[in-house]
Amino acid sequence: MTSNGGGTTRGRRSLRADAQRNEDRLLEAAAAAFAREGAGASVKDIARAAGVGVGTLYRRFPSKEVLIEAIYRHEVQRLCESAPHLAATLPPVDALRTWMEDFIDFMMAKDGMADALRVVLTDDSEKLHTRALLADAVAHLLAATGESAPERPHVDAEVVLMALGGISLMASGEGRRDLATRLVDLLLHGVVGT
Rank of each mutant, 00 (worst) to 15 (best):
A88S: 09
R73T: 06
H140T: 15
D124E: 15
D102R: 12
G51P: 12
H140C: 13
L142D: 04
L142T: 11
K110Q: 13
Y58K: 01
A47C: 10
E65R: 08
S82K: 15
K127C: 06
S63H: 01
L141R: 01
L67A: 05
Q20D: 13
S125A: 10
L57V: 06
D102Y: 07
W99L: 01
E75F: 10
L79A: 03
S14Q: 15
A109T: 00
A47P: 04
K64N: 10
P91A: 15
A29W: 13
T122Y: 08
H140R: 11
S82Y: 03
L26M: 13
E65C: 07
S14I: 04
P92A: 02
R36Y: 02
E101I: 13
A114D: 10
H140N: 02
L26N: 10
L57A: 10
R118C: 01
G40T: 05
A31C: 03
D115T: 06
Y72T: 00
T130W: 09
A19G: 00
A70M: 10
E28H: 13
D45T: 14
D45K: 14
S125E: 09
V43E: 12
S63C: 05
D111T: 10
S82I: 03
I46W: 13
V43Q: 14
R13K: 07
A132R: 14
S63A: 12
A31T: 08
L142K: 01
A87C: 12
L121N: 07
D124Y: 04
V119E: 08
Y72W: 14
C80M: 10
S125D: 07
F61M: 09
T122P: 08
E65P: 02
A31I: 03
A116G: 03
A116L: 11
S63G: 09
V76F: 09
L15G: 05
L79N: 05
F34L: 09
L128P: 02
V119D: 01
V119K: 04
G7N: 11
G53W: 06
P84G: 05
G11D: 10
V93E: 07
E37R: 12
P91L: 03
L67W: 06
D94P: 00
S42G: 04
V66A: 15
P92N: 04
